[in-house]
Design a protein around this nucleic acid. Structure first.
Lengths: 356, 356
DNA sequence: TTGTAAGCGTTATCAG
DNA sequence: CTGATAACGCTTACAA
């Protein structure tokens, strides 16, 4: 004859009453770290009773008392951008096994919204923060870290190296792309660089500048153009700009896949086929780019792992005795994925090969 | 000379001391719903002080006292599946403006993990739940709803109509697809149906069965094959099966885009081109399918709106005085997007046109 | 080994 | 209109 309709939640007190001990005993028995303080048989009984009564700790009370929420805030520009879900998934997988959960927020690239979200999350007492939305200059974030709140940036980093990060090996990615293109005979390689306010855009562009000389690529100002955002529309615009300058190139290295998608579309509008007339490369290997026409040659990043490592590291930071530790910076290896959007340049039609 | 390093959080008491009133007065002044109880000037002072001291409510204390967390749990099969991010985004947009946040969990289609997540979320005292992971038979979910916890299923629904839902007009989607195909002259139309344990798979299949007769399509058993999951691999397997039976068809209606992607790949392996030899349609219009070769004809669902409506409705349910209300069921309209994967059947090579 | 009691920051009830 | 006070459920010295 028990009421099943409006069930009040079972508390420690209920369990204590059921067993005939004090709440504090129950509390100790239920926490693995303090269980040893209790007589094994009593502990056993308590465990059983709490199971039977379906006791679940009240997270609010726990938080109020301990000042810990086992919740972390995750801020991304836009969860709808295919780059982020795998990262978020990785974070959640790492957190779940440790009893943490993530609350999520989108900034749409607006730094004011980032600030607002961080506020909201702090008000909710998150134990730490994972930020995929940071720009290179981000005083607010440095301050958070300085205040002792565990913070990690993923995919991107801030210039200030006091805030921990998990990122991809951007320079190596660009080096691989260039090596590949060079091996196909390309010498006039253009670059659609990403926003320089983001570490990804800056690092990839830096890689391009660093390697193109040594690899024997033509070093022409006109071959580089900067996108204002990592999206298809900017990819298109940049190709227009490249073409408008009259720059000559046989390949375009794009700072990410979405720019590449836009670039290919724009080329095609101008009657330039990919890869017959110009090879194009992307970066990230986001879902579906292998099904595009042509399938995109790109750099595969370990998105899931980026998130997972960040989640793990963050928990480590949270549970480490407070105080001084060096901010860790994890750099994950990448992989070159060769597909149909790159191919050897057409057989030299008379001008012969380069010097040397 | 203020310490900026280890700042303790400012509480109601701090504000009260600063202004020289009691905490309860501050509490009242800060809550818009009770602000009218206190003298305007005092309220003014309190607002100012709380601003100046950067007071933020302690969410844990609020929750402990009120039994409300302003947090809702969102459960999806896999955030990495492109169908879900827009829905989640919609949910978050609806919640954010109302001061709620979402915590997220992935089940990978495993019902036991769904149960586990719901447990975790309840333990954290979520005010409500949005589930994108439900199967048609889901006793656990019905029970939640019966216990009075606000629950909404999105994209899918459970058979038990006591749990609220926001879904797409599946039958209409299939009807549009079939109308389109018929207008192109197709009569032998196959169907790769989705899992029948999911409302989406079942409703789309039901639509196919309902309309194919009236529309004059050939009504052949062999033209229907069931996928065990909504993914590319199953799409491929189903085409193999279709081909193995020797079924003849000029078009395939797939229960979602991923099945269609797999189907096109498998057809191509058998030397059948899409759309020249067989037209293929998808469902969902997920990102990038317009860039595929061929671009996919599909049904566009209002993913973002599905999430937004669900978020809104859930908050309404949460804030409604507890008790009896009918579970709402919202059905959103869809849109047919015609692209390159469908075309008119080849000019009749002798057999002439159908009767009539 | 277990019980006692204080207190985390709020809101709500009840006086004044 | 405002203040005092209790209570939400839990953890943790401290006492026994």
């Amino acid at each position: 004859m028990q009421k099943t309709s409006i069930k009040k939640r079972v508390t420690l007190k209920d369990v204590a009453n059921a067993v005939g001990v004090h709440v504090s005993t129950v509390s100790r028995a239920l926490d693995p770290r303090t269980r040893h303080l209790i007589t094994p048989e009593v502990a056993e009984q308590i465990l059983k009773a709490s199971e039977r009564l379906d006791y679940r700790q009240n997270a609010a009370a726990y938080s109020l008392k301990t000042n810990r929420t086992r919740t972390i805030g995750v801020v991304v520009p836009d969860i709808t951008n295919p780059v982020f879900p795998p990262i978020i998934r990785g974070v959640e997988d790492a957190l779940a096994s440790r009893g943490y959960v993530a609350i999520l927020g989108n900034t749409d690239g607006d730094m004011r919204r980032e600030t607002g979200l961080v506020e909201t999350f702090r008000s909710r007492g998150v134990d730490g923060l994972i930020l995929a939305s940071v720009e290179r200059e981000d005083a607010a974030v440095s301050k958070l870290a300085a205040e002792g709140l565990p913070v990690i940036t993923v995919n991107r980093r801030v210039d200030d190296s006091t805030v921990a990060s998990v990122v991809n090996d951007e320079a190596e990615g660009i080096r691989r792309v260039l090596t590949h293109l060079v091996s196909l005979g390309h010498r006039r390689v253009a670059n659609i660089a990403g926003p320089q306010s983001l570490s990804t855009g800056a690092a990839r562009y830096a890689g391009f500048e660093k390697y193109r000389g040594p690899m024997g690529l033509v070093d022409d100002r006109d071959l580089v153009v900067f996108a204002n955002a990592f999206n298809e529309a900017e990819g298109e615009r940049c190709v227009e700009e490249l073409l408008a300058c009259g720059a000559e190139f046989t390949a375009i290295v794009c700072s990410n896949d979405r720019l590449a998608v836009g670039a290919i579309a724009a080329l095609s509008r101008h009657g330039l086929r990919c890869p017959e007339d110009v090879s194009v490369t992307g970066y990230n290997d986001m879902p579906m780019v292998e099904r595009m026409q042509p399938p995109l040659t790109t750099i595969r990043i370990q998105s899931n792992k980026v998130g997972f490592e960040a989640g793990q590291l963050l928990v480590k930071m949270i549970e480490r005795p407070p105080g001084e530790y060096e901010a860790e910076h994890i750099v994950l290896p990448i992989e070159l994925i060769v597909r149909g959007s790159t191919r050897a340049i057409r057989p030299p039609n008379g001008r012969g090969r380069e010097t040397g």
